[in-house]
Design a protein around this nucleic acid. Structure first.
Lengths: 202, 202
DNA sequence: GTCTATATTGTGATAGAC
DNA sequence: GTCTATCACAATATAGAC
């Protein structure tokens, strides 16, 4: 098996993710990534040519994880309750595993907004599908009338924000007790979907 | 009047805010700030000694605007509906005037979490006051039982997230039409408070 | 107070030996 | 493929003339 050649590459990617997640593009140093990977700066350039290209590899991956995959389910023919529960549960579970993603993606999106256009096209995102799914539930009288865009953003906001604002909220509301905050984030899986369902039920 | 001496200082602060908001601490360059202020790099150091001190002046101000002042009202004896409406309305109105604040504060908080502790102490934030206000409404049977921490975070998340994620959401959901997005943000004043009230009413 | 010039260090990137 | 040495330039900060 020819895994040897991709081995170093994987180590670099892991180290780069660690550093880029923590410091962002501008704050990260190639030297720091090399240290983290236990090798030399020159090797990073050998494998990825430039800091930019290395970053792109990390960002693209993170961005795809940040965009909920579960969206298709929003258009299935299960009940609204079930759709929301599945979505929120899956989304929060995903983010808990990589909690640095939201603030990382949000930050870098702000640093380089142009990047988004390209990414969106590659991923073939279709929010309209979600909207029509929501609209159908409204028309069928399953939930109260609400602008689908507001509802979608509400769902994402309630799921993502506690991760993006973690350094602040954990300090303000939990005396910086990270164990307590983690427990709180787990609770939100049920809490958020109930909050949403309560709000739109007829 | 001795405004002349503080005049240059104000120009610097304005330029620094512009650049720091756009690029963050790591991305900002003293040269760029000097250009924006129409003066020389050396002057920035003359007035603020270092990039760090200049940044601190900007951040402290932004952070205080980001933390909602309106919290006291959450403990007044008006109805829950009115409290939420006032809070959300005031908060979103404030952010609309300086929409870059959320992502700026969130980013820099993540870059330097230690900073928070000091800031919180200086500001004398007391979330417990809000919690007891919410708890009282629950005990009085005005709203359904809900963990006050979840409710508070929900309120803030729904208000702030659309600003933090603006580059993404405006592109994804509004074809990058900033006018439409701005209209959408204005709508949220009513939308968000209604969403919350619906969710917790008995 | 404000400028020009410069010191000093940091940082991405490449050349070239092994 | 991996390392050491180094280039070229960018960036914060200061010295010193006006």
């Amino acid at each position: 098996m020819s895994l040897k050649e991709t081995d170093t590459e994987q180590i670099i990617l892991l180290a780069a993710k660690e550093i880029f997640f923590k410091k962002g593009y501008d704050g990260a140093r190639m030297q720091e990534i090399a240290d983290e990977a236990g090798m030399n700066k020159a090797l990073l350039h050998y494998y990825f040519r430039s800091k930019d290209k290395l970053f792109e590899a990390i960002f693209n991956d993170a961005f795809q994880k940040f965009i909920p995959r579960v969206v298709e389910k929003m258009n299935s023919d299960t009940s609204f309750e079930e759709k929301v529960e599945t979505f929120v549960e899956n989304y929060i579970t995903t983010i808990i595993e990589i909690p640095q993603i939201p603030i990382f993606v949000l930050t870098e999106l702000h640093r380089n907004p142009e990047r988004i256009v390209g990414m969106m096209k590659k991923m073939g995102i279709q929010p309209q599908i979600i909207f029509s799914g929501i609209q159908k539930d409204i028309d069928d009288g399953k939930i109260r009338a609400i602008n689908p865009r507001h509802l979608l953003i509400n769902i994402i906001a309630l799921s993502v924000f506690p991760f993006a604002a973690k350094p602040l909220l954990q300090n303000m509301l939990f005396d910086n007790n990270s164990g307590e905050y983690h427990k709180f984030l787990l609770e939100r899986k049920k809490e958020v979907s109930q909050f949403i369902i309560n709000s739109v039920k007829i």
